[in-house]
Computed example of a mutant assay.
Amino acid sequence: MLVAAGAGDRLGADRPKAFVALGARVLLAESLERLDGSPWIDAIVVAVPEGWEEAAIVLAEELVTSKVAAVVTGGASRAHSVCAGLEEVPDEALVVLVHDAARPLVDDGVIERVLAPLAQGYDGVVPGLPVADTVKRVERGVVVETVDRDSLVTVQTPQAFPAHVLRAAYAGPLTDASDCASLVEARGGRIRVVDGDPRLLKVTTPADLALVASWL
Rank of each mutant, 00 (worst) to 15 (best):
G128V: 04
V126T: 08
V131M: 06
G124F: 09
G141T: 04
V155P: 02
L152C: 10
V144T: 13
D133S: 04
T154K: 00
V147G: 07
T146S: 14
D148R: 05
K136M: 12
G124M: 10
V153G: 08
V153N: 09
E145Q: 15
L129N: 10
Q156G: 13
R140P: 00
R149L: 06
V142A: 09
T154W: 03
G128C: 03
L129P: 13
G128L: 02
R149F: 04
V142P: 00
L129I: 11
D150T: 15
P130G: 03
V125H: 01
V143E: 15
E145G: 11
V143R: 15
T134F: 03
G124D: 12
V142H: 04
V126A: 12
D150C: 15
T146P: 10
G128Q: 03
E139A: 04
V126E: 09
D133Y: 01
V135H: 03
D150G: 15
T146W: 12
E139Y: 03
P127F: 03
T134W: 03
V155K: 02
G124Q: 12
V153W: 09
G124N: 12
V126M: 08
G124P: 02
S151E: 12
S151C: 14
V143S: 14
P127D: 08
T154A: 08
V142W: 01
P130M: 05
T154V: 07
D148F: 11
Q156S: 12
R137I: 10
Q156T: 14
V144G: 09
S151T: 13
V138K: 07
T146E: 15
V144D: 11
T154D: 14
R140Q: 01
T134Q: 06
R149T: 08
R137Q: 12
V138M: 08
P127A: 04
D150E: 13
G128W: 00
R137H: 11
D148W: 06
V153E: 14
V135N: 04
V131S: 03
T134Y: 01
S151F: 11
V153H: 10
V143Q: 15
V143P: 12
V138W: 03
V126D: 10
D133P: 00
T134I: 05
V144H: 14
V125S: 06
R137E: 08
T146L: 13
S151N: 09
V155R: 05
V142K: 09
L152T: 11
D148E: 13
A132M: 10
D133T: 02
S151A: 14
A132I: 09
P130E: 01
V131W: 04
E145F: 15
L129A: 06
V155F: 04
D133R: 00
G128P: 01
D133K: 00
G128R: 00
G141A: 02
D148S: 11
G141F: 00
V144W: 14
T146G: 12
V125M: 02
G124L: 09
